[in-house]
Amino acid sequence: MRARTLWNLIRWVLSGSVFFLVWLFFSSETSLFAHLLGLAGAMLISALTYRVFLADHEAGLRYFFPNPIWVVVLIVRLSWSFYLSSFRIVGTILGGPCRPRIVHFRTRLKSDLARFALANFITWTPGTITLDLDDDHLTVFWFYADTAHRRLAGEKIKEGLEGILGKVWV
């Protein structure tokens, strides 16, 4: 079998497995017929969409399969900073200080999925919104900017998130 055909097959099976897992969680069905039907549906949707979800050029499983232990660390870390930022925004709404600014910085993450996750989590955390992600270059609207220095701004916004994401993916 040619390498490209094998890679397409792996992508189809992997994305189909994820769809099937989501379907299992959502339906909570236990009968064999329901499982077979769900599997058939998941594989059909996967056949139509695996090119979208798993990019052809990322031929490494660590580029899109997360390390489960670090996913747990990421969720705990993210939830903590998420609530801290939310309380800070509430303080600003009630009359506290703020210093809005658009900042630019780079990320060390390599995989598309990790970069997308970083951009998404930056937006998800109140106080920062990602405006653009171009290759490894991020443009962020920062509500509490205390520096215009690229690298420092990047370190403050990413707050260790990049390091954890680098262990979840690459």
Partner: peptide, 8 residues
Amino acid sequence: SRLQASSV
């Protein structure tokens, strides 16, 4: 800034 409030 309203976007920040709505994100909360």
